[in-house]
Lab assay of single mutants.
Amino acid sequence: MATVKFKYKGEEKEVDISKIKKVWRVGKMISFTYDEGGGKTGRGAVSEKDAPKELLQMLEKQ
């Protein structure tokens, strides 16, 4: 499965596409929420050019 690499609050993070719950576009950025486990929801964003094609496909399906 594909992963998304991004920075959040200065920390490098990587999340599996299957854990992503919601995806939306903000200008040229793709924002998303994902399941961190333990009932927590994380947030992240990547630029449109750095987003994996699976993430862009999720955006188109909504």
Rank of each mutant, 00 (worst) to 15 (best):
E11Q: 06
S47G: 13
T33S: 10
K22C: 15
R43S: 06
G38T: 11
K40H: 15
G38S: 09
D35K: 08
G38R: 09
A51L: 12
S31P: 07
G37M: 12
D35G: 06
K9F: 04
M58K: 04
K28Y: 10
I30K: 00
E60A: 15
G10V: 01
G44I: 03
A51M: 06
Q57L: 13
W24G: 03
S47D: 14
K13I: 11
D16G: 07
K9E: 07
S18P: 08
I20L: 13
P52G: 05
M58I: 13
E14G: 01
I30Q: 00
K13V: 06
E11W: 03
G10M: 02
D35V: 13
Q57H: 13
G10C: 10
K22H: 15
V26R: 08
G42A: 09
D16K: 05
D50H: 05
L59I: 12
G27R: 08
A2N: 05
L55I: 10
E54Y: 04
G27C: 15
G39K: 05
Y8I: 05
Q57I: 13
K9Q: 13
A51P: 06
E36F: 11
L56P: 02
K7G: 04
V23I: 10
Y8V: 08
E12S: 07
V46N: 03
K7E: 05
K61Q: 08
A45G: 05
E12M: 08
L55H: 00
G37L: 08
V4M: 02
S18V: 13
D16L: 11
K9R: 09
D35L: 09
K5G: 01
I30A: 03
Q57S: 06
K61W: 14
Y8A: 04
L59W: 11
E60Q: 07
V26L: 04
K7A: 05
M1R: 04
G37P: 10
G44F: 03
I30R: 01
P52A: 04
R43L: 13
G42N: 09
G37V: 12
G39H: 11
G42M: 06
G38K: 12
Y34A: 01
G10S: 03
K7L: 14
G27Y: 14
G42F: 15
T41G: 09
G44D: 01
K40N: 13
I17C: 09
K5P: 01
T41M: 12
K22G: 13
K7R: 09
E14Q: 05
I17K: 02
K19Y: 14
K61P: 11
T33K: 12
E54N: 07
K28H: 06
F32V: 03
G27P: 14
G38N: 08
A2Y: 04
I17G: 02
A51D: 02
R43D: 10
L56Y: 07
K19T: 09
M58C: 13
K9W: 05
Y8N: 04
E36H: 09
G27K: 15
D16M: 12
A2S: 07
E54Q: 08
G37K: 06
I17Y: 02
G38Q: 14
M29L: 07
T41E: 09
K40T: 13
D35N: 04
K49Q: 08
E54F: 09
A2C: 15
S18W: 15
K49I: 15
K7N: 06
E14V: 05
T33W: 12
P52N: 04
K5N: 02
G38D: 06
E48K: 07
K5S: 02
T33H: 15
K28F: 06
I30L: 14
K49R: 11
K13Y: 09
G37E: 07
K22E: 14
K7Q: 06
R25T: 10
E60N: 14
V4K: 00
T33E: 09
Y8K: 04
T33R: 09
K7D: 03
A45Y: 14
D50F: 13
G42C: 08
F32P: 00
Q57C: 14
G10N: 05
F32C: 03
K21W: 15
G37H: 14
Q62P: 11
E14C: 08
S18R: 09
I17T: 05
I20F: 08
V26E: 12
G37I: 09
E12V: 10
V23G: 04
S18F: 15
D35S: 14
I30H: 01
E60P: 13
G44N: 02
A45W: 05
K49C: 15
L59N: 04
D35I: 11
K61E: 06
K9S: 04
I30T: 02
K9Y: 10
K9G: 06
K61V: 10
K7W: 08
S47Y: 11
Y8Q: 04
G10R: 01
V23W: 06
S18I: 13
K13C: 04
V23D: 00
R43P: 07
Q57Y: 14
E12T: 10
G37R: 08
K28Q: 08
K19L: 11
K22L: 15
D50E: 09
G42H: 11
P52H: 05
E11G: 06
F32S: 00
E54S: 05
R25K: 12
V4S: 00
K28W: 05
E11L: 04
G38E: 10
M1V: 08
K7F: 08
K13P: 00
Y34N: 01
W24N: 03
Y34F: 07
E54C: 11
S47F: 06
Y8S: 04
F6E: 00
